[in-house]
Structure formats: C-alpha cells, structure tokens
Simulated assay, not measured.
Amino acid sequence: MIVDLAVRAQVPPPLRARLGRRVERMLRAAALSEQAPAPLEMSLRLTDDAAIHELNRDYRGKDRPTDVLAFAMREGEGGDLHPELLGDVVISVDTAARQARRSRPIRIGEAEPLAAELLFLAAHGLCHLLGYDHRDDAEEAAMNARMQALLDEAERRGPTRAA
C-alpha cells in the first residue's frame, strides 16, 4: 500500500496496518471464490483530492476529484496474460473523510468512520477490478452483494473463506 505524504497524518500507522490486513483478506477471499490458480494482486494508493483530481481528469475526462478510481489490468489487449494481476485502486483520503460522516447501505464493522469508509472504498475498487460495475440497478445490486461478502470476510476471524 502506498500512502502519499500529503495524507500520511490522516492515516496513522495502526489504521494503515489494519486496512492492509483487511484488503489482503479480501484478495484471498476473491481468489478462493474465483478458484484462481495463483494469489490475486492489486496495488492500493491512498492520496489526496489534488492527485486523484488529476488522475480523474487525465484518465476519465472528469475535471473534479472523486473518491476512488480503479485501473483494471484484466481489461483490453493482453488482459489475460497475467490474470492474477488485477490492477490499481486509488483512494482520496480527503474525499473519504468527508464521506465518512454519511451512512452506507452496506454493513461495515469498523467503528471509526474514516476506517470504515476507506475499507468500503477499497472493496468498491476491488469489485471494479474483478469486473463488476454499477451502470444500472441490476449491476449495482450484484456489485453491492459482492462488496458485502468481501467486507464481511475482511472482518471475520479464522481461515479465509471464498467471498
């Protein structure tokens, strides 16, 4: 996990460690669900609004910051060369902190609002890397169900189960 200097103070080491463990568990659960022959990999970058604004403008043509971006490596030409390499997820901690004050339709066991929002956004980005989207109600329902399964598994103790 990469934590930009601009947001390092907002994401103290214990939160970074907990988030890293939970994302790793979600990746293991996804690999079990997909019966992947190798562990799944993704990078996670925590950044600020200025950096994600630039990425959103350059890659999506949207001239504003957003909460999370996912850059899938399984898509396009050569996407099947290394199916275990899912891609990159970038989260704006600034936007996550603002959004942390609202309630989510998905259950997240984290007590600290920022931790819960970061975990939610990591699961959201991971689902995009796994091929989910939310262009209509049916897609959104399927994506939300997978996110909830991954989030439940991230917080469960014991051996990792498919999710």
Rank of each mutant, 00 (worst) to 15 (best):
residue 1 M to H: 05
residue 2 I to F: 13
residue 2 I to D: 15
residue 3 V to I: 14
residue 3 V to L: 09
residue 3 V to D: 00
residue 5 L to Y: 15
residue 6 A to I: 15
residue 8 R to E: 09
residue 8 R to S: 11
residue 9 A to E: 09
residue 10 Q to H: 13
residue 12 P to F: 13
residue 14 P to W: 02
residue 14 P to C: 05
residue 15 L to K: 00
residue 17 A to D: 15
residue 18 R to V: 09
residue 18 R to C: 10
residue 20 G to C: 02
residue 22 R to Y: 05
residue 23 V to C: 03
residue 24 E to W: 02
residue 27 L to Q: 03
residue 29 A to D: 06
residue 31 A to L: 09
residue 31 A to R: 04
residue 35 Q to E: 14
residue 44 L to A: 06
residue 45 R to M: 14
residue 45 R to H: 14
residue 51 A to G: 13
residue 54 E to Y: 03
residue 55 L to N: 05
residue 57 R to E: 14
residue 58 D to C: 01
residue 58 D to G: 01
residue 58 D to L: 11
residue 58 D to S: 08
residue 59 Y to P: 09
residue 62 K to S: 14
residue 62 K to T: 14
residue 64 R to A: 11
residue 65 P to V: 14
residue 77 E to L: 12
residue 79 G to D: 07
residue 79 G to K: 11
residue 79 G to F: 00
residue 81 L to F: 09
residue 81 L to A: 12
residue 81 L to Q: 08
residue 82 H to E: 13
residue 82 H to Y: 15
residue 83 P to L: 07
residue 85 L to N: 01
residue 87 G to V: 00
residue 87 G to C: 01
residue 87 G to D: 03
residue 88 D to Y: 01
residue 89 V to P: 01
residue 89 V to Y: 00
residue 90 V to R: 00
residue 90 V to I: 01
residue 91 I to F: 08
residue 93 V to E: 02
residue 93 V to C: 08
residue 94 D to N: 08
residue 95 T to R: 13
residue 100 A to M: 12
residue 104 R to H: 15
residue 104 R to A: 14
residue 106 I to Q: 08
residue 108 I to D: 04
residue 112 E to N: 13
residue 112 E to L: 11
residue 117 E to M: 15
residue 117 E to G: 06
residue 118 L to C: 01
residue 120 F to V: 02
residue 121 L to H: 08
residue 121 L to Q: 12
residue 121 L to M: 13
residue 122 A to K: 01
residue 122 A to S: 07
residue 123 A to I: 04
residue 126 L to G: 05
residue 129 L to Q: 03
residue 129 L to M: 12
residue 135 R to V: 00
residue 137 D to F: 11
residue 141 A to H: 13
residue 141 A to E: 15
residue 142 A to D: 12
residue 142 A to I: 04
residue 143 M to E: 05
residue 144 N to C: 02
residue 144 N to T: 06
residue 146 R to I: 03
residue 148 Q to F: 08
residue 148 Q to M: 12
residue 150 L to I: 13
residue 150 L to D: 00
residue 153 E to V: 02
residue 154 A to M: 10
residue 161 R to H: 03
residue 161 R to F: 00
residue 162 A to L: 10
residue 163 A to T: 02
